[in-house]
Design a protein around this nucleic acid. Structure first.
Ligand SMILES: [Mn+2]
Ligand SMILES: [Mn+2]
Ligand SMILES: [Zn+2]
Ligand SMILES: [Zn+2]
Lengths: 138, 138
DNA sequence: GTATTGACTTAGACAAAGTCCAGGCTAGGA
DNA sequence: TCCTAGCCTGGACTTTGTCTAAGTCAATAC
């Protein structure tokens, strides 16, 4: 993750303790935290960090293409540090757990020209829903 | 749509003018209105209808399986009367226009067992993004 | 090391989307 | 026609996110 910080500094990003902490919180696999969850974890390390700064920093990371914004339900957006490997999401309807998944083939190819309404298509997001092993137990 | 109302009455739904108006507003193809848009249109026909009733009625229609809830971005949920024909959505990144589309094949089949993490998968939603003919013009 | 400065951070006000409640109203059955 | 369970209403409240004015500080220049 420190290579990320160096990369951003090279792009003229001022490296503050707040930004460093937000970047540290967003570290790992299958990480899809809401802004408030990021804030709660950031406060553990830097008690005075504000909500506004967390929102600002997340927004900047999204603009820079280093973090993805994922809207899986009508609730809070989730922030996903796995921005450099295309993937889709599998979500448990019971507990909300989210996993990164990699389906085969390109979903865009499955949309015939007659179903495109003249649109220029740029991407497709797939959300799989189901029950995780814990929630599926009788 | 009145067959819908009769069907619901058969299920013990009390048929009020408010519910009738909400059902009428949600009529047509490629209809994906937000709750506030439904309310604004309902008020044209029944000026005293409240926001709470629109939310309640939409929620009931979703529970009854007569309307789908679509969360395409982090904004307001959209309500889709096309609940009886499986379909996916194509959204213009420029103006937000939404079209119903029917891709070929089953997206669930594209997810190998090794990518399912032991989940029991129940469905998949695909959101295609692009630019509509108007927004793609130079 | 110190000064400078524009970018950054903060607290809190504000806004949009949605939920909840007490009290009044009414559709539909008796 | 009357009764009442279920429905509706206005408004308070919650969650999620945005904006702003004023204070702070990272990085550069000296
Ligand atoms: Mn992800
Ligand atoms: Mn639809
Ligand atoms: Zn689960
Ligand atoms: Zn458009």
């Amino acid at each position: 993750m420190s290579d990320l910080l160096e990369r951003l500094r090279g792009r003229g990003w001022r490296l503050t303790s707040q930004r460093r902490v937000v970047a540290e919180v967003l570290n790992g696999d299958h990480v899809h935290l809401t802004a408030d969850e990021v804030h709660a974890r950031a406060v553990q390390r830097l008690p005075e960090i504000s909500r506004a700064t967390v929102y600002n920093t997340l927004g900047e990371l999204v603009t820079l293409g280093e973090v993805l914004e994922v809207s899986t339900d009508g609730r809070a957006k989730r922030y996903d540090p796995n921005a450099h490997h295309a993937h889709q999401h599998l979500i448990c309807s019971g507990c909300g757990a989210i996993r990164d998944v990699h389906p085969q083939g390109d979903p865009i190819a499955a949309l015939p020209a007659t179903e495109r309404f003249g649109f220029v298509i740029s991407g497709a997001e797939v959300t799989y829903r189901g029950l995780c092993p814990d929630c599926a137990r009788p």
